[in-house]
Amino acid sequence: MIRHLFEFYAASAPGQAIRNSSWTFAVIEMAHLFALALLGGGLLVAGIGLFGRWLQFPARADGWRGLRAFLAWSLAATAASGVLLVGSNPLKYYFNDAFRVKMLFLAGGLVLAILTDLLAGRHGRIAALAGLATLAAWLAVATAGRLIGLL
């Protein structure tokens, strides 16, 4: 089922357009990296802020609340550019172990981010731990993403 989706994407017009243009891929890759940097920085500040010591926002959840829209937009940009990147060779990504690991951590990171968002402002310590787990999951996403090109 999932493989059929990747095959469909490979045969589609957008997939072929990305595959046939080397600079389109490069530009999408640059956008993906920048969006991931924004997401990583935002998660780090929002996550550490939940501990209430080092970053010391007026209230623990202020960092998370104030960055919520920023995190959502940078996540959307990372995801959109990521989907386009896969279009360069969908089946190569489908069979790449690092890509599969990245997708698993991505799913985990999304669930943990939503959980942190629900807990932020109400359950201080649990929210902070959820924020820390979210950060760890996204660090794993970035590391696995880096490994895609190496494996």
Partner: peptide, 17 residues
């Protein structure tokens, strides 16, 4: 190379905020 990209992301991400 991986550490360089991750630290660049940390730096650029926090500067952007």
């Amino acid at each position: 190379e991986s550490l360089h990209v991750l630290s660049l992301a940390l730096m650029v991400g926090t500067i952007a905020i």
